[in-house]
Amino acid sequence: MKQLLSKKNLFLLAVIAVIYAVLFALDAQGFFSRQAKALLVPIGINIILAVSLSLIVGFLGELSLGHAGFMSVGAYTGCMLTVNLDLPMYIELPLAMLMGGIVAAIFGVIIGIPALRLRGDYLAIVTLAFGEIIRSIFNNLSVVGGSGGLNGIPKYSNYTIVYIMLVITIIVITNLVNSRHGRAICSIRDNKIAAESMGIPVVYYKLLAFVVAAFFAGIAGVLYGHNLGILKPSTFDFNKSIEILVMVVMGGMGSIPGSVIAALLITVLPEILRGLQDYRMLIYAVVLIVMMLLNNNAKFNSFKQRVFSKKAKKQGADLAKEGE
């Protein structure tokens, strides 16, 4: 208990509460335009998606192009539940999220199994194929509305619920990453053969990463469905998976705060550029390319390091001292 109430944790708790209260107060004062208000929930959902995918891509080091597939499985499971059940919201929604998460997690195992045999680009294409298969199945499943979509989903998602879920997601994944289990996952990323010879059960930890990531993607899907009130298979296409991947990569691999910020920016950016209409996508594409080129430009990186990274400088100085 003492450790849980450390200064750092109390400070984090305060930050979480303050962000929530400030946004809530601003909203109550009518500060947000209707558009901005409508963005709060999608931002939260995208943060959950990005943080969960970063577990696979950033920490396990495997490329997944099928995250939207997990999201859709969760979304359809949860929404079918609330559409067909007739319970009060405060029972129905948590149940839907739990079920959506669990079913998505089961799919996480299914797609995690090829991950045990395949590496890198081959796994990427399998996850892509998995996403497309799920989508075409939903497209042809009349029980869930087929390509016309699933209608009449109660619009339960609101700012508070999404905020709570996103805080839970961040805490769980951050804690996982900073535990012995997280270290095992990272060791597989850095060197699989060394991890095996350290006795790390690689199979278990690969599956674990996929399962946890899929679970939260499923929850994000449930929230998504209950935000729009309708689910269409076409939402969960390859481009959605890519969008989530872009958030993770732009946020800096293996950085959870980075994923959060990138998810925020990438959700807001298109809305800011709304006035530019057709140019929106073009600008997005250019930003994407330029960001990647800059990130891998030696000159730009050394510039960035000079400006930002005092820590790196200190490490360098220590090393230099060592050498003397």
Binding site: V57, L63, G120, D121, A124, I242, L245, V246, V249, M253, M281, L282, Y284, A285, V286, L288, I289, M292, L293, N295, N296
Partner: peptide, 16 residues
């Protein structure tokens, strides 16, 4: 660069 950076760039070019 890392393969992932190249992949994202390629996707950027595709969108472009």
């Amino acid at each position: 660069a890392s393969p992932l950076a190249v992949l994202i760039t390629a996707i950027g070019v595709s969108y472009f």
